[in-house]
Design a protein around this nucleic acid. Structure first.
Lengths: 140, 140
DNA sequence: AAGCTAACTTAGACTGGCTAAGTAATGAGG
DNA sequence: CCTCATTACTTAGCCAGTCTAAGTTAGCTT
């Protein structure tokens, strides 16, 4: 078996290709990947600004502007947290939910298509690796 | 075995986590991921502007500005292609090469560390999946 | 030689990120 | 209670990175 460092080098090369292909694929989409990611965080219910910022690895002012754009486009609404009047919450609107679902559908369609081009065996190795990959890229 | 669409959904969720973790990890690095990616494309020798733009999935003006910043920082130099005076080439400087290697080293160190936290078995499944993943995310 | 095409650059606008500084609410000490 | 530090967020201003539209220069075609 390959030693961890060599494996890391291979994964690193793979990640580079992955990032490039994701960029090429998301060209010309009607919603940016960041907006998609933020909407995704709101799927399970309202969230606080500071939660969102932490989850996405950005500072609060960045999230304020991000949410401002989503607000402007009618995809989210802001609210206040009853127990602490300093806290701002954000919630999906129906339009935001729809936008999220449609974009996700497109992405999954695309991935499915690519997966179909692989052999059953190759898909099997990917499936077997998913838990380990999830752990590898877990919250840190 | 899971059907391709369900597998695609799992991969999609995994990709989201991956992107978020990559963002968090690259916070505060002295070079942006885009700059790293462009420097990486120059490792094997000079490239044309239009090649670089196509590989990175951006338009030519974007690459012009990107290269402008790398130029300003002394990491690349521009040249002309003898056979066609319209063509602009870009090449790593020694400083650019060093910067690239150091950044890559850091990333591989980080990945190695994470890999060490997995079991031998888990690393095995990842290693087994790499060729299929490479194919999955190939140029398309 | 003229005019079309191709390879880039420039200009101007938007998203997305940051730090620094401002505002308003909470909470802790006296 | 009042004061004051802290917390949660916003505003302002900067820079990177992306786009489209329009300009420039070189090659190509006829």
């Amino acid at each position: 078996m390959t030693d961890p460092r060599t494996l890391a080098e291979h994964i690193n090369r793979g990640l580079r290709d992955l990032v490039l292909v994701l960029r090429r694929v998301s060209l010309g989409q009607p919603i940016t990947t960041q907006q998609m990611a933020v909407l995704g965080s709101l799927e399970a219910g309202p969230r606080r600004m500071s939660d969102l910022a932490a989850e996405h690895g950005v500072r609060l002012p960045t999230m304020t502007r991000q949410i401002g754009r989503l607000l402007r486009d009618g995809l989210v609404v802001r609210g206040r947290y009853a127990d602490d009047a300093r806290v701002v919450t954000v919630e999906l609107t129906p339009a935001g939910g729809e936008r999220l679902l449609r974009a996700r559908e497109r992405r999954i369609d695309h991935l499915t298509e690519r997966l179909m081009a692989l052999s059953e065996d190759e898909r099997g190795t990917i499936e077997a690796a998913l838990p380990a990959l999830a752990k590898l890229f877990a919250d840190s």
